[in-house]
Nucleic acid binder design. Structure first.
Lengths: 160, 160
DNA sequence: TTAAAATATACTGATGTAGTATATAAATGA
DNA sequence: TCATTTATATACTACATCAGTATATTTTAA
């Protein structure tokens, strides 16, 4: 159904709640702010930290913070931190297709291009954009358009 | 991981193999052409027929054919026939969000817009496009761009 | 009337998701 | 130095969905 997992959806919500600068956020804080169970928040923050998007500090007065300004963290970054590489089909994965169909199944190239368009749309959208109340303003919309356009102009797409 | 199901991927491959006009395709034929198991092809054709994309004729000399010219069947049509409504998150579903988070989770609107962009990208791409060897030509690429652009210009997106 | 072919339904195993529990390590402050 | 706070790490279970398969029934053409 082309659905992202609940967990990566949660992750986006959590990261959106960490945009305040220089602040450390404890798991308890984030759990209460987002209404996501503590154990789940814990699991997600671990993955976000492993992938380098967040940093954690132990002990009293510890907590998590974003490793980069929210403008530099894309929605794609968060999704891929939790769920791995974004690939609509096996054919669209960067490390190749191992599906059981014939080598040239006729739609392989198509999926790869569709995948690039979608991936770039998500890559162009930052966490800062999501937090802003004027998400639907023209500037951000234009960026999404630019995203699709740039992909379409590039013959070989080599995003990870 | 934002992956479409194998079955809907198969469905796209199968429908792509039915583009030849006025021809009826038996399940056996399609199974052999695509290397997808017969029972699976059978299941998928049932769904495609139920959703109105294909028509089946029983008996000897029977078989399946597309209900519309391939130019009028979008990739989105096929995906949704098999997997139901395309929705990245619960928040993006047309019949509302029943997630356990707070009503205004802050990213809801964002997901809805992202979802529209992706949905429209897939809606603009026809089965005929996939079959063509010049899929990556400028005309089709332009259509994908136009897709994202049109969504961004429309304030309220009300595609199903 | 026989064979071809779609239609319809039901069943099973595998996979992955979501959620939870628990133990350990590190840092702070008293 | 000790107790508390907080992250880190791992493991486990229930559940849902997906993918694949089997089988019986209906319709049509020859």
């Amino acid at each position: 159904m082309l659905r992202i997992s609940k967990l990566s959806d949660y992750a986006v919500v959590i990261v959106s709640n960490m945009v305040s600068e220089n602040e450390r956020h404890t798991l308890d804080e984030l759990s209460q702010a987002t209404h996501i169970p503590l154990a789940t928040v814990r699991k997600l923050l671990r993955q976000l930290t492993l992938s380098g998007l967040c940093t954690g500090k132990k002990g009293a007065k510890g907590g998590y913070s974003l490793a980069f300004p929210p403008e530099e963290i894309s929605v794609l970054d968060v999704l891929q931190a939790v769920d791995g590489e974004l690939a609509l089909t096996q054919c669209a994965r960067s490390h190749g297709c191992d599906c059981s169909l014939v080598d040239d199944c006729g739609v392989k190239q198509s999926w790869q291009i569709i995948n690039s368009v979608i991936r770039d749309t998500l890559a162009r959208l930052s966490i800062a954009d999501l937090g802003s109340n004027d998400f639907d303003n023209q500037m951000i919309r234009n960026r999404l358009i630019a995203s699709a356009g740039s992909v379409a102009r590039i013959p070989a797409v080599n995003h990870v």
